[in-house]
């Protein structure tokens, strides 16, 4: 009971924390306290958070192994650039268009493939992701393999930050709803949940489409920050990178996905000097983490106020 009466207060606290964090970084940015290298890292961080959290919805919560997330990111990126740079429409139209296109692609890919299970689904989504890339490579309208260069920089800190927060909120709220419980039940036991009268296909497709839309959003933000997009950027290795973040953070843990995304982004930056050795270090990190903590950093638990109150020795 206490929980409920306090919930508005806590909510307000959350909002204040979020806004404070935003304003703090915004101030630091405008005061020139953050050098360019960290500005880019900050951008990659937000984009990676969106990708990891959205892939976690599919892989972690729904338990459907998807290896085609980069394909949806590519669609979001390309469609939005066509809207903003070729058609000269405002950024918001690009964002909506990119997300919508990625969502539709998610639906088209998801409906037939989500009947498949486990590794078959993994390979089918990987195949779709690669097909998207090959098709982009052969479309002259978007310059084929050379990609689109000179994209107007429209992605700014407010967009990045609130897009990431928006993604997290939508997914956290989805998972706390009856939809979320249905989705988790699919992961736990698909046959049983079907027997309980849950239309598993519908929920799997729903999760897949939402995940794809946010991958599209990440693509939009990526394209309008990094100046150039090429089909090659979105190959299956990119999907692997996202999967690594999700598993490293802990399948089915949104906070885990966030932490892992931030960690991987900084790791990448820190290792720039080490040439090929960086990839060896990265690989070893993966292997060691998996051997000693196969459930990922967070397992399927969330980092929340409760975790902290536990640490402070507060009431249970």
């Amino acid at each position: 009971m206490q929980e409920k009466s306090k919930s508005w207060l806590q909510f307000l606290l959350e909002v204040i924390v979020l806004v404070l964090l935003f304003t703090l970084v915004q101030y630091a940015l405008s005061a020139g306290l953050v050098n360019q290298s960290y500005q880019i890292t900050l951008t990659s961080m937000c984009i990676n958070v969106i990708l990891a959290v959205s892939l976690n919805l599919i892989n972690g919560f729904t338990g459907q192994l998807s290896l085609g997330h980069a394909g949806f990111m590519a669609i979001g990126a390309y469609v939005s650039v066509i809207i903003t740079n070729f058609m000269d429409l405002p950024f918001i139209a690009g964002i909506l268009g990119g997300c919508l296109a990625a969502g539709i692609a998610g639906f088209v890919v998801g409906v037939p493939t989500l009947r498949l299970k486990g590794d078959y689904l993994a390979i089918a989504t990987l195949a779709f992701g690669e097909i998207i890339r090959v098709v982009l490579q052969n479309i002259d309208y978007v310059n084929g393999p050379a990609g689109i260069m000179g994209i107007t920089k429209l992605t700014t800190w407010p967009w990045l930050y609130w897009a990431a927060i928006f993604t997290i909120l939508i997914i956290v709220n989805l998972m706390n709803s009856s939809y979320g419980r249905a989705i988790v039940s699919i992961r736990e036991d698909e046959v049983a949940s079907e027997l309980m009268g849950i239309n598993t296909t519908r929920y799997k497709v729903l999760a897949f489409v939402i995940g794809a839309m946010f991958a599209g959003l990440a693509g939009v933000l990526y394209a309008h920050y990094f100046y150039i997009i090429r089909p090659e950027t979105f190959n299956f290795l990119k999907s692997f990178d996202m999967l690594v973040m999700v598993v490293l953070g802990g399948l089915g843990s949104t906070t885990g996905a966030i932490i892992a995304a931030v960690f991987i982004t900084f790791l990448t930056l820190a290792l720039q000097k080490y040439a090929a050795m960086r990839m060896v270090i990265y690989a070893l990190t993966l292997i060691i983490v998996m051997i000693y903590r196969p459930q990922g950093l967070m397992g399927n638990k969330e980092l929340s106020r409760k975790t902290f109150s536990g640490i402070w020795g507060g009431r249970k």
Partner: peptide, 12 residues
Amino acid sequence: IAALITAIGLSL
């Protein structure tokens, strides 16, 4: 999936 990630790690 943990084993899969390890495989990706080994590959790299």
